[in-house]
Design a protein around this nucleic acid. Sequence first.
DNA 1: CATCGATATTCCCATTCGGACATATCGAGG
DNA 2: CCTCGATATGTCCGAATGGGAATATCGATG
Lengths: 124, 124
Amino acid sequence: MAKARPVKLGLSHLRITLSENFYIGPGRADLMELIAETGSISEAAKRMGMSYKRAWVLVQALNEGFGAPLVEASRGGTAQGASLTSAGREVLERYRGMQEATRRAIGRDVEALSALHADMSTRK
Amino acid sequence: MAKARPVKLGLSHLRITLSENFYIGPGRADLMELIAETGSISEAAKRMGMSYKRAWVLVQALNEGFGAPLVEASRGGTAQGASLTSAGREVLERYRGMQEATRRAIGRDVEALSALHADMSTRK
DNA sequence: CATCGATATTCCCATTCGGACATATCGAGG
DNA sequence: CCTCGATATGTCCGAATGGGAATATCGATG
């Protein structure tokens, strides 16, 4: 049985593709944000309800896809853990900004579609 | 070997989720548009480079997910083929409008990210 | 130098996804 | 009533996805 993720209504996916090898979307952004917050890939993965492996693969994709690493990780010792590089912080910030701008820009249309949808659903 | 689809840069995926059972994204929108243009599910599928079955599954999802059918299809005779219902046309139009509004809203950020990306890629 | 916590990496396996293919169905028209 | 073109569906199979577990690695610290 699949995990029952809560459904995010309205603007649910905004993906920006910068090249053949790199894009940033909601999942990657959330992961980056959680890494920044927790300072750990494994903890971020846990909070997102995904396996460490999956999170690690995503981090790889982020780092290798972009020209420079967005997430920096070090193992061993006191400094172990992960954090965002300055490029990573900028990418994340820009993405959040785009999400907000998009929400503002399409709010009315979403409302209209929602209304149409509700309308159609009620009348059997 | 997987099909080499051309990569769409910039805003590549905009998905609007209206309920647990329905969302509209770029693939579905393109399919609807091609159905409207060609008057045929199979022809639309061919142009999108996907199997008829996949297109049919998508049409099912569209029709069952939304309260009312968005795509109408009839088989046999002269009138055979498929077309959009008025609800389908409205959904498609709204979606295209949202795409445009989004592009306008995030253009600058995309540029900035693109520049950052290019910058990072060049310096080895 | 043993421990600890977190990253890094590789196998193995179940599930899902999707394509190819095969039919079945339908309805106008010859 | 047979053909034609397009929709409607099911089956089979290989590819891709993703999880879980098992290891390996690293470095500060006691």
